[in-house]
């Protein structure tokens, strides 16, 4: 929790046909696991969409590792090292698990048309490297026995793992996790959380949206609360938990 923040958002605004979804959000994210919570409709998903290039914000700036990436297109933001997962995993169902994973590594020379034809230079070396990385990542998430199965045949939980593995293979600086544990059984949930902590200890940064507040409180170093398109408060889990405004925002819900 030192140095400059990895992600720094200021004054982010977004409206949809008169309805304000984001109303000037200021937020900084440092290395570690940051949790993002808020009642339904607080603007969490819109916030994700705006910083990852899926939606163009109407105002405000997004700085990632010191570079202004506001309004940049998704692929270029991903190549800068900021990636996200989807709430509902989007696998390429006709392709195998291995192929899904192999899509992720950046800078593969074989992905250029000329290289695909001529196959000189780094072609073979890059592909071997990608295959090795994909196999290692699959092993890390215990998907290695499924590598040659079509992704469409995976269970819901396995898809969550595949999505996470695929995103990590892009070698990101920071990962936005959009409810990675929704609909996952407790065993798998523990497994995913273990993996996330293990990666965090290796220096990976996560921004973690989750419905289950207990989970956020338990696993995050820092918690941000959003409400009605604005940041309500932030701080360590214990401080957030006792904040009266948070309790009001979640009125009727158990904290």
């Amino acid at each position: 929790m030192t140095d400059d923040p990895i992600l720094s958002v200021s004054g982010l605004e977004k409206t949809f046909g008169g309805i304000t979804a984001l109303d000037g959000v200021d937020l900084t994210v440092d290395q570690g696991i940051t949790g993002l919570i808020g009642p339904n409709g607080a603007g969490k998903t819109t916030f994700f969409n705006c910083i990852t290039g899926y939606l163009a914000p109407d105002g405000g700036t997004v700085e990632f590792q010191g570079d202004d990436v506001t309004g940049n297109r998704t692929p270029s933001i991903v190549r800068e090292g900021l990636v996200r997962t989807f709430q509902i995993p989007r696998e390429l169902e006709n392709m195998t698990v291995r192929e899904n994973l192999l899509l992720a590594p950046g800078g593969q020379s074989g992905e250029k048309l000329g290289r695909a034809w001529l196959r000189g230079g780094q072609f073979a070396e890059d592909e071997r490297r990608s295959r090795r990385e994909a196999a290692e990542m699959a092993a890390f998430f215990e998907l290695d026995h499924l590598l040659d199965e079509p992704a469409g045949s995976l269970s819901g939980g396995q898809r969550k793992l595949l999505e996470l593995a695929r995103v990590l293979l892009t070698e990101p600086e920071m990962v936005l996790l959009d409810e990675p544990l929704a609909g996952v059984n407790p065993t798998l949930e523990r497994k995913i959380l273990e993996r996330i902590h293990e990666l965090e200890s290796q220096g990976q940064t996560f921004l973690f949206v989750e419905h289950d507040i207990e989970l956020i409180m338990e696993h995050c170093d820092h918690v941000v609360v959003m409400h009605q398109g604005q940041k309500l408060t932030e701080g360590p889990p214990s401080a957030v938990r006792s904040d009266q405004r948070v309790i009001d925002a979640y009125l009727g819900e158990e904290i």
């Binding site: 692929p75 991903v78 990636v83 390429l92 006709n94 899509l103 992720a104 992905e111 995103v167």
Partner: peptide, 16 residues
């Protein structure tokens, strides 16, 4: 093939 199946996925993985 990834573009064919779901263009958003390769985009989300940094492909133009």
């Amino acid at each position: 093939r990834a573009v064919r199946d779901d263009e958003d996925v390769p985009r989300a993985l940094g492909k133009e």
